[in-house]
């Protein structure tokens, strides 16, 4: 991993000769790279400072008891997929959203973040708006089915956080997606 910030800092500390001219002063640098909490979000994967996942022997619920993680429960399904430039929810995903709406209704303290995503084609800015539309369409359906406004937040990641980084239809299909995430999962 390129440690540009280290290099820049070292350069700054060393008072290295800058190559700017009087008319073009150097760009000042603001480094936010170190400010992300490790594991705090989807962007944190690959960050070297990943926290150690410890083993908990003190008891508590066995993992299988969490319906959100039970592969046989529709609640374990978190992604809604779309066609290009579309944000309508296909019929096949409606039972998944109904299950999550029921879970939110029955667990009033639970909160959800919906992240809308697009494939890489077209405009990044239009894709921000399209991703927001996708997330909002899921939120709207959850609210119609009884979830409360305070429980659900819809945000867009546009084309900026592709699950698949390739440049073909296979990757694009997987990236046109809304993800429903519960607290602790993003």
């Amino acid at each position: 991993m390129k440690r540009i910030c280290t290099i820049l800092l070292a350069a700054a500390l060393a008072g290295c000769a800058t190559t700017e001219t009087a008319t073009q002063p150097p760009a000042a640098v603001e480094d936010r790279a170190g400010t992300t909490k490790p594991g705090a979000g989807p962007g944190a994967s690959g960050v070297p400072e990943k926290p150690v996942t410890g083993v908990d022997l003190t008891g508590g619920k066995p993992a299988g008891a969490d319906p959100l993680k039970d592969p046989s429960s529709p609640l374990s399904m978190r992604s809604i997929y779309y066609d290009f430039d579309k944000y309508d929810i296909k019929d096949e995903y409606k039972p998944v959203i109904e299950a999550h709406a029921r879970y939110l209704r029955e667990n009033g303290g639970v909160k959800m973040l919906i992240q809308g995503n697009t494939d890489e084609r077209g405009s990044r800015e239009y894709n921000i708006a399209l991703g927001q539309r996708r997330a909002e369409s899921v939120k709207k359906m959850l609210l119609l089915l009884g979830a409360r406004e305070e429980q659900v937040e819809a945000v867009s990641l546009g084309e900026e956080k592709p699950k698949e980084t390739g440049h073909g239809e296979e990757a694009w299909t997987r990236n046109r997606r809304s993800d429903m995430l519960y607290a602790g999962e993003y």
């Binding site: 760009a27 000042a28 603001e30």
Partner: peptide, 22 residues
């Protein structure tokens, strides 16, 4: 809700930089 919790920003500010790396 804390979905958008602002990250506690310990900004590392660099006043100057050599930019010839790439």
């Amino acid at each position: 809700m804390s979905v958008m919790r602002p990250l506690i920003a310990a900004l590392l500010l660099l006043a100057a930089a050599c930019g010839a790396h790439a």
